[in-house]
């Protein structure tokens, strides 16, 4: 780094907020969580996401969401949230005979 750069270098900004990135791989698929990044605002977050998560043609559409805007289930609530579904196999469509004429189910 030159002396000019050393003197003028912009100090790291530790306070850029965190954004979650969702990428749709191709038309017809859902957006899937790809990762997270830091950016000063939503517009720049979208651009950073383009550079970080679609460099190898991974996507045709990107959503960015402020991490603080996501309400997530807590690991502590895992049992009341998810366990009651464990013993209810009748919720799965496993008791039907699939007709031969419907190959893509």
């Amino acid at each position: 780094m030159s002396l000019v750069n050393a003197v003028n270098a912009v100090p790291p900004e530790p306070d850029w907020p965190l954004w979650e990135v969702f990428v749709r791989a191709r038309r017809g698929l859902s957006h899937v969580h790809a990762g997270s990044l830091h950016a000063p605002d939503a517009t720049m977050a979208l651009r950073n996401a383009r550079d970080l998560y679609t460099r190898r043609q991974e996507g045709v559409s990107i959503w960015v969401v402020a991490a603080t805007a996501i309400t997530a289930s807590s690991p502590d609530e895992k049992d009341p949230f998810f366990d009651p579904a464990a013993d209810k196999p009748y919720r799965h469509p496993t008791f039907y005979d699939v007709p031969k004429e419907a190959p893509h189910l």
């Binding site: 750069n5 270098a9 912009v10 790291p12 900004e13 830091h38 651009r47 950073n48 550079d51 970080l52």
Partner: peptide
Amino acid sequence: SRAPQLEEDVALAN
């Protein structure tokens, strides 16, 4: 390696 953030490193490299 000298940009304000890692994200900007990648952007400028691109």
